[in-house]
């Protein structure tokens, strides 16, 4: 099929494959930390950040959004510690704050000079060299971080108190994860859109948690599922002229349903 000769489509496949590796891997930790919705939260906060950036006269549209995502991610971490057993409360609060702030900024009577959301939420078909470099760099950092700190993050994710008692630098590890989360989500939202990012963080992890027997296995399964759905989804969307992000997400959900139906029943 001659779509494969088109540069934009090849770039979409490459960028998609990269995000499908880093997103689910980071997502697995986030899901276990009860922060599944953080993708949506950070995307809303980014909109507020971009709007604020314009009003304050910052130059680049992306800078304000990225800064806001970073701040929000750190705030989530702070709130998460304050409400230990209700970690999801932190993202709900920031989501509300982000939407409210964005609405307020948009309702100010002066124009922004540009269509903010068009800068913030990209399409996977419009990746340029800078985007691909950014995705590749972020993916490399995520893979390296997980490879180097796999044990620490794993321990911390399941029992933060025990990890702290055991002498792990929990604070630094949490901080690292927050920064990484903001980086992955901030970069990917701009490149492929908020829908795809949120879905990649959560649905593959959901599949992995259902079907695997160990944490390592769920991580591998999550990445495998995401890669398969991404490539199949992009090809299907390309062939049948469908919206690419939506196609990939629906495929991910189909895989999740199949996993739910066919997983091994727990033995009794």
């Amino acid at each position: 099929m001659d779509l494969l000769t088109m540069e934009f489509f090849r770039r979409a496949l490459i960028g998609g494959a990269l995000i499908a590796a880093s997103g689910p891997l980071l997502g697995l930790f986030l899901v276990l930390r009860r922060l599944s919705m953080i993708g949506d939260t950070l995307s809303h906060v980014s909109v507020a950040g971009v709007a604020a950036g314009y009003l304050l006269g910052l130059g680049s549209p992306a800078a304000g959004g990225m800064a806001a995502a970073l701040l929000a991610s750190l705030a989530v971490e702070r709130l998460r510690r304050a409400y230990k057993t209700y970690a999801e409360l932190s993202i709900a609060i920031l989501m509300a704050g982000g939407i409210a702030l964005a609405s307020l900024l948009f309702s100010l009577d002066r124009g922004f000079g540009v269509n903010i959301t068009s800068y913030l939420f990209g399409s996977i078909y419009t990746l340029n060299d800078a985007d691909l470099t950014a995705i590749a760099a972020v993916t490399a950092v995520v893979l390296a971080a997980v490879a180097l700190q796999y044990k620490e993050w794993f321990l911390m994710t399941f029992d933060e108190d025990a990890a702290a008692v055991g002498g792990l630098p929990v604070r630094a590890l949490n901080l690292g994860m927050s920064v990484l989360t903001a980086l992955v989500i901030g970069v990917s939202i701009k490149i492929v859109g908020a829908l795809l990012v949120s879905a990649l963080l959560t649905i593959p992890a959901a599949c992995g948690l259902l079907a695997a027997r160990s944490f390592r296995q769920s991580a591998l399964l999550a990445v495998g599922v995401a890669e398969a759905a991404m490539l199949a989804g992009l090809l299907a969307a390309g062939f049948w002229n469908l919206a690419p992000g939506a196609t990939v997400v629906l495929l991910l959900i189909a895989v999740l349903l199949a996993t739910l139906i066919f997983r091994r029943r727990p033995r009794l």
């Binding site: 964005a102 609405s103 959301t117 068009s118 908020a194 949120s198």
Partner: peptide, 22 residues
């Protein structure tokens, strides 16, 4: 946005929010 696609429609969500506010 478009604007390139907003994916799931965060743009729409925002407009909805703005409409509610109004």
């Amino acid at each position: 946005m478009r604007r390139a696609g907003t994916g799931f429609g965060n743009g729409r969500l925002f407009r909805f929010t703005a409409a509610l506010l109004a």
